[in-house]
Amino acid sequence: MKITRSVIGLAAGALLSASGLAAHAEDKQLYIIGVFHADVSNSFSSVVKKGVEQAGKDLNVKVEFVGPDKFDVVQEGQLIEAAIAKKPDGLFVSLADCDALKPMVQQAIDAGIPVMSFNSGASCFKQVGSLVHVAEDGLEAGNGAGERLVALGAKNVICLNHEVGNAILEDRCNGIKAAVEKAGGKVSIVPTSLADPSVTKGAIESAFLKDPTIDAIGGEWGGGPSPAVIDQTLTELNLQGKVIVSYFDPGLDTLPMIKEGKIAFETSQVPFNQGYLPVEFLAAYLRYGVLPGGPTGVVSNGGFFIDKTNVDKITDLVKGGIY
């Protein structure tokens, strides 16, 4: 027995050395840094951060998850450069602007640090040099939400966007637009504001004033401050129940509204996974040399619907910070 085991061990060791991996690779603690394009303490990114930290605990990885103090691609690039100086084993970044971040990612690769991407950058992560992309495909998710809105009877949809210029948000609205227009409906895009609820309120009021035939709302971030404003505005306009409301990425405020029937459904990009999976994939790559995602390199992680059927379970998860 004893002999056999050691023989197997030797053989396995030889195999591992031959394949370029150190023995007991799993024992060595890895160091992985994630860089986001906005602040990492909002209700969305803090869940991503939770996923990063959980993965670090589960997989014996020292993790860090950082971002600028507000949406700022220039600063994100500067943070990536600084992260390289910390000499991590692996790096994962949200590619909010591929053109802008490509040189920094290239620097990391040149420094021998493997890079994966998450959240934003589905269309361009390959050119940038990211090995795997974990994210919702905005167009796909938008398309799914649009089809569902059509199925619920929507013909004239306003798609709200609180971060004009952010590719994934634009994609979602474009996805909704494609699906609704395919069914013969109409979609107009309305910019809102995270910082100033009065802007959001005014935008919606004037949209309905201009076009009373609007029968559905899509696009907006459910975990942000807008749903409460939208809810109040719809009540004031006496449109509650007459307009189909749907959001992306739920927050604790909106889940009860699903139960009440004020919100038809929400589409989640499962932020916890966006933090957890890149760490897991990087660790697996660093330790065993394996990559998920197949030839496309995309690990699709969105388009998950939350409605009356599963809202209770999701609520519990959100309360635990895991959603």
Binding site: K70, F71, D72, V73, V74, G77, D97, D99, A100, L101, K102, P103, V164, G165
Partner: peptide, 16 residues
């Protein structure tokens, strides 16, 4: 400097 080193421009550049 920003546009040519990053290869892009967005509406948030320079904010603050």
């Amino acid at each position: 400097i920003q546009v040519l080193s990053l290869g892009s421009a967005d509406s948030f550049r320079g904010q603050g």
